[in-house]
Design a binder for these strands. Structure first.
Length: 538
RNA sequence: GCCGCGUUCGUCUAAGGGUUAGGACACCACCCUUUCACGGUGGUGAUACGGGUUCGAAUCCCGUACGCGGUACCA
């Protein structure tokens, strides 16, 4: 009987799934899948931003579509030097290069909104002509005053809405003659959308299902600013249309302004042509929305790569510099709010492209857990071949002035210690003793119970090592134990001193493996110099 | 305040009306290891609350609480 229940359920589920897919993707069967990541260049890219890129990228690649980068730099006041270049580098590091963008070019260039400035006004004017938008002449000061004047306990932040617009200086409250006069005098103005009254705007979000809003409580957003630049609300609709975007994924913080965008779509191009929206859940920090501050406070990165704020010189640490592999970074980001329904957690980029499904993205925000991020990175360091790790590791050693002469030796070292590293920077601690001879053993000396017997053992051991027929860990270990036996010493008592001699501390991989990699010259040299230091110390 | 979106172990999550509510991170214990790790085995630990609907609810509905987001000529 349970079988029957299961079977029915399965059938129901598959039907549902087909219906679901048809629902979401029927229109795009005719339309090529085109998605965009549209950041504004105001600083470093944080986890949430990169995850938005990732979901866009995965969706595009999965459907054989295009991934477009569009720079939304309509606010000159917030433009930050270097931020755009940072975005390119981050995408490159993560292996998510756009098919079209300011740098790559493409059929819909330019891809920087500041360079598209001249094309937005006509759309705003079209709305004005249709009575769906209007001129407003209120100055910044007047807006501030109005907000103060109409502020009450119940309404602490009055909006430019249906009630307030009738009290302001705009084309709805002035005669056409006055408006004309103001325009002729080159009075600065903005164009605001005129939100209709008591209408319900709803649309289907790919993640949340149907979402609806009452237009009475949405304000008259500015569409075209007084400097002639569009706001996000106009630019996103116009450019998504012009660039033939089929699906638009963005952070959840955009959900409240979605009705504005739906309306602009309806007025300008028709709702049928509108991309399918998906509002991604936020990534949270320890106390709410993840911020740079959280990173600084709790000691983990929030940006993809190091970012220096030009104005202040403040440096914000990135995952790359902290020692994350891009494969791991992408993997952990993908899992922050999505899973494929199985218990698999480690995914390659290719697997993600294959298995990612926007329907399985969560609705709720996810709190970022750095411990789990470390686990992902550890898993990736363990399963990445040493030769693929080499460049990164060499660079890290170089930055710490650790002299690496022999690449082959370095590969062996990486293979030997990679299981112990959670971060690429852990290779410093785990492997630098191979390249830098330890010294200054004072702290360990007392614990070693160094004496003449041990001293003479190591003297003989040096001789033994020099005449070893084959230099590998098994032979070294064999010689060590034989000699200990014939000296009537327990190998256990001697192994720690040997480790201290070779490593300089009570850590590291098996000591005979270390000796093998060090080679006979270096091994015997370290034993001999340490022995003499111990002898003189006692 | 108003509007919107959420809510399963501490954290990330599985579950599509019937499961001893599963997995992962972290934590604890044991094992492995003549170092430190890695690793292995096991354990602690959750359906926010209150009402419905139903033979049966984490799952569907309503309410409450809580959290988050928005409420700019920022994006």
């Amino acid at each position: 009987m349970p079988n029957k229940v299961k079977l029915q359920r399965f059938q129901w589920r598959s039907r549902e799934r087909v219906a679901h897919q048809k629902y979401y993707f029927c229109s795009c069967m005719e339309k090529r899948v085109r998605v965009r990541f549209a950041p504004s260049p105001t600083g470093g890219l944080h986890l949430g931003g990169v995850r938005t890129v990732l979901y866009n990228y995965l969706f595009a690649k999965q459907h054989g579509g295009d991934f477009i980068l569009r720079i939304e730099d309509t606010d000159q006041g917030r433009y930050v030097q270097g931020a755009e270049e940072y975005i390119y580098q981050t995408l490159a590091w993560c292996g998510m290069e756009p098919d079209e963008g300011p740098k790559t070019g493409g059929p819909f260039a330019p891809y920087r909104q500041s360079e598209r400035k001249s094309m937005y006004r006509a759309y705003a004017e079209q709305l004005v002509a249709a009575g769906q938008a209007y001129y407003a002449f209120d100055t910044t000061k007047e807006l501030e005053d109005a907000r103060l004047q109409y502020r009450t306990a119940e309404n602490p932040s009055p909006q430019y809405d249906q009630a307030l617009r009738l009290k302001m200086r705009n084309a709805l409250t002035m005669t056409p003659e006055v408006v004309q006069e103001l325009l002729q005098q080159n009075t600065p103005y903005v164009i605001r959308i005129k939100m209709p009254q008591g209408e319900t705007i709803s649309f289907t979000d790919m993640i949340r299902g149907e979402v609806s809003f009452d237009t009475s409580v949405v304000d008259d957003k500015v569409l075209l600013k007084s400097d002639g630049m569009p706001t996000y609300h106009l630019a996103v609709v116009v450019d998504d249309h012009l660039m033939q975007i089929s699906h638009a994924f963005r952070g959840e913080e955009w959900l409240p302004s979605a009705p504005v965008h739906v309306l602009v779509w309806r007025y300008l191009f028709g709702e049928a042509a509108m991309p399918q929206w998906a509002h991604l859940p936020l990534i949270l920090g320890p106390n709410g929305k993840l911020s740079k501050r959280d990173g600084a406070e709790y000691g983990f990165p929030v940006f993809a790569m190091n970012w220096m704020t030009p104005a202040t010189g403040e440096l914000t640490e990135g995952f790359r510099e902290r020692g994350f592999l891009p494969t791991a970074f992408v993997n952990l980001l993908a899992m922050l709010g999505w899973n494929d329904g199985t218990e698999q957690e480690i995914f390659t980029a290719a697997e993600l492209v294959q298995k990612f499904d926007i329907k399985n993205v969560h609705k709720g925000g996810a709190k970022f857990d750095f411990e789990k991020a470390l686990w992902f990175n550890h898993e990736w360091i363990k399963r990445t071949d040493a030769d693929l790790l080499l460049d990164e590791v060499l660079q890290i050693f170089g930055s710490k002035d650790i002299p690496v002469r022999d690449t082959d030796q370095c590969l062996k070292i990486i293979a030997l210690v990679q299981d112990r590293c959670h971060l690429l920077t852990d290779f410093i601690e785990q492997a630098s003793f191979f390249f830098v001879r330890p010294g200054g053993y004072d702290a360990d000396l007392a614990k070693l119970k160094w004496n003449d017997t041990k001293a003479s053992f190591f003297t003989s051991f040096i001789a033994e090592l020099k005449s070893l027929e084959e230099w590998n860990s098994a032979f070294i270990e064999h010689a060590f134990k034989n000699l200990a036996g014939s000296c009537n010493l327990k190998p256990g008592e001697l192994q720690l001193p040997l480790r201290i001699m070779l490593v300089g501390g009570k850590y590291g991989p098996p000591v005979f493996d270390i000796a093998e990699i060090l080679g006979v010259e270096e091994t015997t040299a370290r034993i001999s110099s340490a022995s003499s230091e111990f002898n003189s110390g006692s």
